[in-house]
């Protein structure tokens, strides 16, 4: 029987994977900006803006926002635990941080709805 991992262990992997994804995005972000700014590039930010306002890019932005929230809220929970707080209540703390994240993603979806439906 495979070992039943605790919620804290799953949160640890979520933290690690989201951190690596964000680091990957940082380099993607720099590459895209460099490509536009290169002498051979378009230099036309308005054209780029047109592209990134397509719904698919808005969805990608929302996914990025969600990944960042997982990392940020989980990180804050860990800092709280480093002060010795919410340790016995860890399972609730993880649930709470993810619930707060879900609400923030929901607000972002509602805010960006006009872009999503065109």
């Amino acid at each position: 029987m495979p070992h039943k991992h605790t919620r804290g262990y799953k949160a640890f992997w979520a933290h690690r994977v989201s951190g690596l994804l964000i680091l990957g995005y940082l380099y993607l972000h720099l590459c895209l900006l460099s490509a536009v700014l290169l002498p051979s590039g378009s230099h036309d930010f308005n054209a780029v803006a047109k592209v990134v306002e397509q719904p698919i890019f808005i969805v990608a932005d929302l996914v990025l926002f969600a990944i960042i929230l997982v990392h940020v809220l989980n990180g804050l929970r860990l800092i709280v635990a480093d002060f010795g707080w919410m340790i016995r209540e860890n399972r609730f703390a993880i649930w709470l941080s993810m619930a707060v994240g879900a609400i923030m993603v929901l607000i972002a979806v509602l805010t960006l709805m006009p872009h999503l439906v065109g």
């Binding site: 720099l30 900006l33 460099s34 700014l37 290169l38 002498p39 230099h43």
Partner: peptide, 15 residues
């Protein structure tokens, strides 16, 4: 260097 490009309209290092 990317931020530099916003001042001088081209990057300093990447040509």
């Amino acid at each position: 260097d990317i931020l530099w490009a916003f001042w001088y309209h081209r990057p300093f290092l990447i040509f």
